[in-house]
Nucleic acid binder design. Sequence first.
DNA 1: CATGAATGAGCCTTCATTCAT
DNA 2: AATGAATGAAGGCTCATTCAT
Lengths: 204, 204, 204, 204
Amino acid sequence: MPTAKKKPNVSPSPERRRELLDTAAEVFAAQGYNATTVRKIADAAGMLAGSLYYHFDSKESMLDEILATFLDELWTGYDTVLAAGLGPRETIEALVTESFREIDRHRAAVAIYQKEARTLATQPRFGYLADSQTKFEEAWLGTLERGVADGVFRAGLDIRLTYRFIRDTVWVAVSWYRPGGQHSPEEIARQYLSMVLDGVAVRT
Amino acid sequence: MPTAKKKPNVSPSPERRRELLDTAAEVFAAQGYNATTVRKIADAAGMLAGSLYYHFDSKESMLDEILATFLDELWTGYDTVLAAGLGPRETIEALVTESFREIDRHRAAVAIYQKEARTLATQPRFGYLADSQTKFEEAWLGTLERGVADGVFRAGLDIRLTYRFIRDTVWVAVSWYRPGGQHSPEEIARQYLSMVLDGVAVRT
Amino acid sequence: MPTAKKKPNVSPSPERRRELLDTAAEVFAAQGYNATTVRKIADAAGMLAGSLYYHFDSKESMLDEILATFLDELWTGYDTVLAAGLGPRETIEALVTESFREIDRHRAAVAIYQKEARTLATQPRFGYLADSQTKFEEAWLGTLERGVADGVFRAGLDIRLTYRFIRDTVWVAVSWYRPGGQHSPEEIARQYLSMVLDGVAVRT
Amino acid sequence: MPTAKKKPNVSPSPERRRELLDTAAEVFAAQGYNATTVRKIADAAGMLAGSLYYHFDSKESMLDEILATFLDELWTGYDTVLAAGLGPRETIEALVTESFREIDRHRAAVAIYQKEARTLATQPRFGYLADSQTKFEEAWLGTLERGVADGVFRAGLDIRLTYRFIRDTVWVAVSWYRPGGQHSPEEIARQYLSMVLDGVAVRT
DNA sequence: CATGAATGAGCCTTCATTCAT
DNA sequence: AATGAATGAAGGCTCATTCAT
């Protein structure tokens, strides 16, 4: 949830706004937030740097809105899964699949998130990033523990390590995933889950 | 392999040089290369910003040397493994273990690499990053293919996807790994390998 | 011919551009290019140092444009003279007169040229300075030779020495010439020519 | 006459001092005073930048000593000429010849003087440059006036213009003169005087 | 809505200079 | 006499941001 603004902000047409944010997200993802100048965004949007300030308060507020919008949608999906009352394995499967769908839909936002979240989370304005991470961790850790208790997941593993393993494994895919490629998000999810759950080695 | 320098560079005492590079690496890793000002590095080293230029040509050359040194050592380890004539599964195990050891030894450099390599690789000066990536890919892909041919790894998986899966899974650990923590690199490697090779799910 | 630029450069209003260049030329001429800080130019222009970069790529590109513009106009004048088919003496007279007119019109640029050309000409960006010098030399040397052949100029003199003598004699005037002084450029040219052609001594 | 110093200054061997000043003068002449870094001088002298400060107080004091030494020698020569009681034409001839000899002996210093004197003369430390210029002007102007009165020089010319003409004409030669070239200073002086006194044109 | 022009803070880097050894 | 290392003051340049038009 972005911080309060002062001047224009929500007034202009939301479509133009979204267009510009998409452009900005693409540039942020490609070059990194810090390395992205407002001018580059403006160039990509076909306007002058100063003109962006009619639509947004600051470069940071663009980043804010991009990430907040993404996390909003992400949690809508996650919450649905978590509320569905599935078993641990099915929950993991659904969460992973949902994650790949988000990568498919919000590639740029996810890439930005991956690269910048850790640093940003320390700033008050981006406190919601830390909150999200906590919620995220709770959901996964709980599910994994439940799975171990139910005998669905192996007992020998460090549960926290396993959580990080699965989490990273999924999100890092954004670094090579390109929407419209040969694999659908669901197909990639299936393969990932197969590796994560059953391993790469042939069972002996 | 860092680019050619002209002025001081290797002449002054290598220990001080390394000290400063370690400091710089820590700051780069914590704040990101772009967000790191030369002043921050100097502060952390207890000197003035300008004084760094007695030891290094530029901020970029510090980054260069940090990454090049890291990759040098990494490949020393990898090459030893690859030349050992191990079977596919054992090669993977040795590579993963070696990787965690490198994370343990060069945490900062690995973190920088993770965050900046993609962008840097396009610059001529950092061409060696792209070269390394290619070599890396060949080594892993070859090993995996051999493993599938030998019936050690499951045949149903997309080999490229599997490569990315393992690669990312390992390196991303740098984001949470802290040297001197409760798990040794070897212990973490063992758990990772257990998950990657045999999966998280209980065998049915 | 200035080097190719990329960003703003020619787009903004050419009048402001010229204004700023005139200011810059004045400061360059008074203090020397190296000793002139961008801040001094900005002060003289009544703006902040950074603001200059809206109009120009760099301090060097200002210098470039000042010199290139001057040489362009200079050669327009020279070429007209050289194409007029005058006799050797009349050509020299016309070239000298034209030169003093240029000093009158572009005092600052000429002063900069005098002081910096030699050093600048070695840089690729300012290669056109060397080219101009070559063309210049050819024109004068040719005219002098023609004059000697025609019996208009004395035969005993080292032609190259004579060329340098006249050339320097003319341009060095920029060091004391002030537009709007008691002598017009044409009047100064007449006196100079009188000395150069007929000598200072009373004929015996 | 250089300003007073504080620390070492005259203590070390005068030969080394002179050696270093010659080196410095050469670099100043080649690159310009401002563009010359202390490091470049030290490089040319085969030592480190800081080491120069054992011999000299500052970069400026090197310049000071170079120029002061040159002017000292120059005035020794000029004063001898002026005290010889020669006629106006012979005085001019002797001064010009002496000037070319100085260019031959102190090429670097003369070059520096030509390029930097105007700017330096405004600084108190270099006040002696302005003094010298005044003395110089008086000597020449007086001689020229005497020559016109005596009927040796043409009456029609602006005397001040003539003075500048001859003065510049001579000193500017430093820009192309190379010691050890095909013409001796005396030979060049003869040719210059021939042009200045009798003109380039054939007498009709 | 957008432009053109400018601001001001801050960044990387250079360089004359100092000083303990 | 000279070195190695550091200082501190600029200097050129970038960039987010502002604002009148």
